[in-house]
Write a protein that binds this DNA or RNA. Structure first.
Length: 425
DNA sequence: TCTGGGGTCCTAGGACCC
DNA sequence: TCTGGGGTCCTAGGACCC
């Protein structure tokens, strides 16, 4: 196996927790967790919290007793802070290469094609140090001939403390030793269902899986799984792309802070979610052709009557306007809503996204109103400057509504809000 | 008492057309 | 009486990811 260039995979350690300890160093070395929206589940854990056996995704109430005993510190999510810290990390990476593909909020791939005489171990070390110096976020680096192998290397870097957070897999001997030791369920792309299926066939290790015939793999794991296996064998199947991908759909569907039965309150929540969703697509200069509304009761409360429903409407022309989309979505909601149920969430999904410069209008259908666009632009600018929902539509209701998600311990927006920045310094 | 949210891609099957 | 086949598009559902 001989590659002119390798791929690096950079992964932030306990990213959300690290973002918080970056501004509150007293958290370092403690058991800290960050919770999902509505303070429902654990979605990030410090090293100590992991060592205490707190699993990813566990409902918070199951570990709350540790908080009472003073053994665990918790925070609500703060995506404004996490998103901004993520941008900072990615910007540091761009100093090292022009091939940076952002994979998720806390992960990126870096390509070095065209750079000569790269010393990868040294580069990984520099990346680690620079990111830490600039953001106080610790990262691990995996290096390999393909994206999948770089990701695998990163897993090893996290597992083995002797590697100090950097692992390079570039010879077939190293790769094959690693694959022999790795359980099939630990592979990227093998989830619980696929793991079960593979176990039924007696396939336990990654090494066994890559030895299976392509046809067999494709039949069971689809073309997606087969591509991953090719990459594990060292064949490149993915190109890095440093261009941000345009969204194909945008969903906003947070749970209510408490069960809601009243249609008018649900309408208000929906209008607010639509304000969030349309902001997101406007920021990408997109417009939606399809609007889906979903409504759910709490499926964990099996003793209560359940109602889950969704419906989609095709818009007469692509739109990213709150008022237009709310108009259609509210009609859908009124069809879906049934009296007498305790609802847990309402959500909106915008799909069939197209660039809003190319909004095609159908024949015999009214043109989008340019005045709406102008008003929306102005509202966006004011809200950007003065804070979300400073100006909002009346159907979004007033602030501090009963349906708001719980967020009892939200950290400050240390990097993006003037008042929070001033309090820190 | 308290159980997340937001995405992507693939496949199978049905509708429809010629 | 015998009753095709291929292509496309759409949708629902299932799998995965972080």
């Amino acid at each position: 196996m001989n590659y002119p260039d390798l791929i690096l995979h950079i992964d932030c350690n306990s990213f959300y927790v690290s973002c918080l300890s970056s501004f509150d160093p007293s958290l370092i070395g403690k058991a800290v967790v960050v919770l999902s929206n509505n303070d429902g589940n654990v979605i990030a854990r410090s090293a100590l919290a992991k060592a205490m056996g707190i699993k990813m995704g566990v409902p918070f109430f199951k570990v709350k007793h540790l908080v009472k005993k003073g053994k665990l510190i918790w925070f609500s999510s703060n995506y404004e802070l996490f998103g901004d810290m993520s941008n900072r990390v990615m910007n540091v990476l761009r100093r090292f290469s022009d091939q940076v593909e952002i994979y998720s909020i806390d992960e990126a791939f870096v390509g070095m094609q065209g750079y000569s005489n790269v010393n990868y171990m040294q580069l990984a070390h520099q990346i680690q140090q620079t990111i830490y110096r600039c953001t106080r976020i610790p990262v691990t680096v995996g290096i390999g001939p393909t994206r999948t192998l770089a990701k695998l290397a990163n897993k090893m870097a996290k597992k083995d403390p002797d590697l100090y957070g950097i692992c390079k897999l570039d010879s077939w001997e190293q790769i094959s030793t690693t694959l022999q030791e790795m359980e099939v369920g630990d592979l990227w792309g093998i989830g619980r269902r696929y793991e079960e299926t593979l176990h039924e066939y007696g396939i336990k290790t990654a090494c066994q899986l890559i030895s299976c015939p392509d046809e067999w793999i494709k039949n069971r794991l689809t073309i997606v799984g087969l591509r991953m296996i090719h990459e594990l064998r060292g064949e490149r199947r993915f190109r890095l792309s440093n261009l941000p991908k345009a969204s194909k759909s945008v969903m906003v569907a947070p749970s209510f802070g408490q069960p809601i039965t009243d249609l008018s309150i649900i309408e208000e929540a929906l209008a607010t979610h639509i304000a969030r969703a349309t902001e997101k697509i406007r920021r990408q200069s997109l417009a939606a052709n399809l609007v889906t509304v979903v409504i759910h009761t709490n499926h964990f409360r099996i003793e209560e009557p359940q109602h889950h429903a969704s419906q989609t409407v095709s818009l007469p022309y692509p739109s990213n306007s709150v008022s237009e989309i709310t108009h259609y979505a509210t009609s859908l909601l009124r069809i879906l809503y049934k009296k007498g149920y305790s609802y847990r969430k309402v959500g909106v999904l915008l799909s069939g996204l197209t660039p809003d410069t190319q909004c095609q209008t159908q024949l015999l259908v009214a043109e989008p109103d340019v005045r709406i666009r102008k008003v929306t632009d102005m509202i966006d600018r004011i809200n950007l400057k003065h804070g979300q929902d400073t100006i909002r539509f009346a159907n979004q209701g007033f602030r501090n509504k009963v349906w708001y998600s719980k967020q009892e311990r939200k950290s400050k927006c240390y990097t993006t809000r003037v008042q929070d920045i001033l309090q820190v310094s």
